[in-house]
């Protein structure tokens, strides 16, 4: 049987999910022997942009170039996996998608910079969006960054044709399992555990730090209940919205006011 052909790609991002793959120091050479890595620009030369079985794609679509690249990758892969919260949800870079890009360009690059960006015939800069807004995504591995453990488990599942099993419950379940004191209810902290998908074994609450939602929202999250708890603890709606906005949890908060 021929080895699966894979490609590892990054759009605009911090490269944290690609780095998570490179951080599998004990498994890296073994991984490389099990598959044919056709493209991994961050880690190898001699890349071939050809038809592949699996594409792992990190980052958000933030430029026209990102979008073209994503579509081009989709056109030649059987399976496309979104790795990391940016690729899955848009992540932190999407937190100000309400603002016109020109305003952001002016803030960071000044008037001269704005002129340079305007000089491009079509707008080069796009609001930061997740992959699923543009192409079919076959599997999503959230996490900021994606957890090494989940990457390895899913990678093995692919190789063996096993069923892929990622958590689909909220962070609170994991937090209870490690017997942490509840930061939200008992200590009145602004913890997003109830509305965030599990997978990190409640890393932050285990360090006395409230969850900021870096894995993205859990299915059917009860935003209203979360907001009501926070309001009754004395948090202003503006702060709640801002904190939920870090990783683009977008409930309609009017209903719970």
């Amino acid at each position: 049987m021929s080895k699966p052909r894979i490609g590892i790609y990054g759009l605009s991002s911090c490269a944290g999910d690609q780095l998570t793959i490179l951080n599998c120091e004990d498994e890296l050479l073994e991984i490389a022997s099990q598959v044919e890595i056709k493209s991994f620009i961050m880690a190898q030369t001699g890349n071939e942009e050809t038809s592949i079985d699996i594409a792992l794609v990190e980052g958000t679509v933030s430029t026209k170039r990102d979008l073209e690249r994503l579509k081009e990758i989709r056109s030649r892969t059987n399976i496309l996996v979104a790795i990391g919260t940016c690729a899955v949800w848009g992540g932190m870079y999407a937190m100000r998608n309400d603002i016109p890009r020109a305003e952001m360009i002016r803030c960071v690059y000044g008037e001269k910079g704005l002129k340079y960006f305007d000089a491009a015939s079509e707008p080069e800069v796009l609001p930061a969006e997740p992959l699923k807004n543009f192409v079919k995504v076959d599997l999503s591995i959230p996490g900021c960054p994606m957890e090494k453990k989940w990457f390895l488990r899913i990678f093995k599942s692919f190789l063996h044709g096993d069923v892929i099993d990622l958590p689909n419950f909220s962070l609170c379940s994991e937090c209870k399992m490690v017997e942490n004191e509840c930061l939200l209810v008992n200590r009145g902290l602004l913890c997003l555990g109830p509305i965030t998908i599990a997978g990190c074994k409640a890393r932050c609450p285990s360090h006395n730090i409230p969850c900021i939602g870096c894995y993205g929202p859990v299915d059917e999250a009860n935003y209203a209940a979360e907001v009501n708890i926070l309001l009754s603890s004395g948090y202003a709606i503006e702060e709640i919205k801002r904190k939920m906005g870090f990783f683009v949890f977008n409930p309609d908060l009017k209903q719970s006011q």
Partner: peptide
């Protein structure tokens, strides 16, 4: 692509900056 970090942290509370 620029992610405009200097803009993203504008208006945020001081303690929210490091995680961003």
């Amino acid at each position: 692509g620029s992610r405009f970090f200097e803009f993203l942290v504008a208006g945020k509370s001081y303690d929210e900056i490091p995680v961003i």
